[in-house]
Amino acid sequence: MKKYRRLKRYWRLLLKYKGDLSYTEYKYYRLFGQRLEVNVVEELLSYDANLKVNYNLYQSLLESIKEKDFKAFENILSTVNLNTVSRYMRTSVKTLKKHLPFIENSLSYPYSNGRIEGINNKIKVLNRVAYGYRNFNNFKSRIMLHFKLKAIISQQKNLFILPLKWQDKQIPNH
């Protein structure tokens, strides 16, 4: 029962990157006492060999992603023995293998569509909260105000949307 409570309470430490764990600062843990974060993780891993195998695989994948080393990532996925990991980790490994070309792109290039996805999500929330606007121009104006954007129309009739802090700067002609 004590092991269960410890695992239930401190499972987030198992998801933390091992390089970010504290090796020097002692902290009081209610179910462990005064310990280092690393010692808490080691004790949690000592409860089950299968958990330790899954943890080591997860940490090696996490490290290769942090280092942006696709070759190491691919090597880890190709050499993992699917019989030794849990059912859930097996599903995750198969999914990662399936999407390997896309993962290579995300590790190779610094581009991300995260900011655009965030903007789309905020627009959807605005739409849901507003229960629909009377006309589209009012809705568009509300979005522009929310994101502090200013629409600028160039000589070629192309629409540029820039943050308000850039409104005084010149836009290059293409």
Rank of each mutant, 00 (worst) to 15 (best):
N135Y: 05
N113H: 08
G114K: 09
Y47M: 14
R142W: 01
I119D: 01
F73H: 02
N113E: 08
I123N: 07
Y23K: 06
L159G: 05
N135G: 00
S154T: 14
K8E: 11
V38R: 14
M1E: 12
L126C: 07
N113V: 08
Q34N: 10
K27I: 03
T95E: 09
L51D: 14
F73V: 03
R90T: 12
I103L: 11
V85M: 04
H174V: 14
S112K: 09
L51C: 11
R35M: 13
G114R: 06
A49M: 10
V53T: 15
E63A: 08
I123G: 07
I116R: 01
A130D: 04
S60T: 12
K124Y: 03
R5W: 14
K71G: 01
R90I: 01
L21K: 01
K8Q: 10
M89S: 12
L31D: 08
L21Y: 00
L61F: 11
R9C: 08
K16G: 00
E63S: 10
V40D: 08
L13V: 01
F147M: 03
A151I: 11
F102T: 06
S141K: 10
S112W: 04
L126P: 10
L15S: 06
L51P: 01
K94A: 06
M1W: 11
T79V: 09
K2H: 12
S106L: 09
K122F: 05
T91W: 07
E63Q: 09
I116W: 01
L51T: 12
K2I: 15
L13C: 03
R12N: 09
L44M: 11
I103T: 06
Y131F: 09
N120L: 12
F139P: 02
